Amino acid sequence: MSIYRKDIYVFDGDRPVKALIRSYTEADFEGLIRIQQESFPPPFSPELWWNEEQLGNHVRLFPEGALCVEIEGELAASMTGMLVNYNPGDPDHSWVEMTDAGYICNHLADGNTLYVVDIGARPAYRKLGLGKWLMLSMYEVVVRLNLQRLLGGGRLPGYDRVADEMSAQDYVQAVIEGKLKDPVLTFLLRCGRTPVRLMADYLDDEESHNYAMLMEWRNPFLPQES
């Protein structure tokens, strides 16, 4: 098992703030569930918040994909991944299918792709840019494990505001062209993720009308598919 630990400074405006990005453990479960509750309030389904059985699987099956950020002793953000075998020609999938509903019992130790199961930050800490730091840290895991890519479905929580005016595909295109901003899709683009395709019925998510944009980051040290 490889333990991840990285001390950095993040910024609250112009003020540097010490932060620790590290592997999470069983001792962190209460704080991780709090992150979920604060990150994904209703109308997001509370049934999709982590429970202790899921978190136990994360640290047991793939500890390299279980990361959190600690600020002054408080858990502020977390990110969870698992390994899958992915082929760009594969059919669409749902979050439940790909992640075993967050239990990751289908994690493949010899998989070629790190799949993002979840990322979230407590609202009080979001101005510190912790989500981007977690994403960059998970890219480091991709490189260390010699994987082909990081992959995951990004919610479209801003789509609900314009769903009566445009299709989900047109909404995504407008965000990519900079005509609109989406809290998740714009964030992923800023993190270096690139669009793969729009997927329907990805997650029970009222704000996104159940759509998600499959987004990837390819390992720059490996040959790329055409």
Results as ranks from 00 to 15, higher is better:
L151A: 01
M138D: 05
L156R: 09
S226D: 07
K179M: 11
F40P: 00
F44L: 13
A200R: 15
T99S: 09
F40V: 05
T194A: 06
K18A: 10
V69W: 00
Q54H: 06
N210S: 15
K179V: 08
A200K: 15
Q224Y: 09
G13D: 11
G120H: 01
M199H: 08
K127P: 02
L136G: 04
I119F: 08
R126E: 03
F29W: 04
I8S: 00
R190Q: 09
E207H: 08
D170H: 15
M1N: 11
N146K: 15
D110V: 08
Y211W: 15
T80F: 00
G73T: 00
C68V: 02
A174Y: 09
G192F: 00
P195H: 03
I3V: 15
Q36M: 15
S167T: 15
Q224V: 08
E26I: 05
V69Q: 01
P63Y: 02
L147V: 07
M82K: 05
E26W: 05
E70W: 02
W50Y: 12
Q54A: 10
F40D: 05
I3W: 05
G178T: 11
N51K: 05
V142K: 10
P16T: 10
L156I: 10
Y86G: 01
E47I: 13
Q37W: 08
V69T: 03
P223T: 00
P43L: 09
T25F: 09
R122C: 03
E140V: 10
H209G: 06
F11N: 11
T194L: 09
V196W: 01
